[in-house]
Amino acid sequence: MTPAPQPVLQVENLSKSYPVGRGLFRQGKAVVRALHPVSLSVLPGETLGIVGESGCGKTTLARMLVGLLPPSTGTIEIDGRPFDTRDRRVSSQQIQYVFQDPISSLNPRKTIRQTMEVPLKVLFGLDRAGRQRRLSEVFEAVNLRPEFLDRYPHEFSGGQAQRIGIARALLAKPKIIVLDEPVSALDVSVQAQVLNLLADLRAEHGLTYLFISHDLAVVEAVSDRVAVLYFGAVVEIGPAERIFAAPSHPYTRLLAASAPAIGRPLVRRDGAGAELPDPLNPPPGCAFAQRCPKVSGRCRAETPQLRATGENQLAACHHPDPA
């Protein structure tokens, strides 16, 4: 038996909370928890999907992973070493980020070449010829024509701009790429192009992905494992092919049943229970309790922890369905 591979990314108890009502010299008392402590580990070459609805904390998690947001608690380790964003020249080569809105992540007053040359200069100190070589290489990898380099961001369609965003992440030669809703701004026909491109790049460059999306059909199609977030906490995590086919957590079940699918009849549900709890005044116990069909007294008193419900499948529920 071979030893288990070392995770490339290890996250322990990562959380983010924001003080509210803070002044210049006064520290606020109230705290909003955007993300409850989360622990994750990702193996090299794996794609971990992170799915959740608006306000579940998925973008907060993503921004902490790439160092755009300092975590309130917890640690991030990459390749067994603590992730340190103080030297961007090192951290940029470990983990990169692809933004949801490809156009707004490009400086409107710079040509694509001006934007793309920056990491090559700052990170690798390449000369002009070296930069040109690397740019053509990466542009070819994402199927973009080299003449696009001298255009401005507003001249591109969403799909092209997202390829540019991916190309920019690739330039830094990272091990891990965090993709934050990379296709949600794209049309369906273009979305599939970009997803397939991402799959090819992963195989070619040995990349590890964290794929964040609200669309579980998309997440399932690209991921090896999926984590489901609800109200700032991981409620279920498991293999992609199992998690929606045999969900353990009632919220995962609701998500899977709500996805509009061709040929699936419309299920009429009661309208009242679609609201998230008030983040300033979260209820005790399970955050999903007020929407849950299996709720019991214990759910409203005690916050459930992640527990194994099947092979490699964990759910934070007091009354999980067997996976």
């Binding site: 794609t47 273009v190 599939a192 579980l216 059909a217 992609a240 699918a261």
Partner: peptide, 15 residues
């Protein structure tokens, strides 16, 4: 090209 839930990890059909 609309991915359907329940299909697992796969290559998608694109235009």
């Amino acid at each position: 090209s609309v991915p359907e839930p329940g299909g697992g990890k796969r290559r998608l059909i694109s235009i």
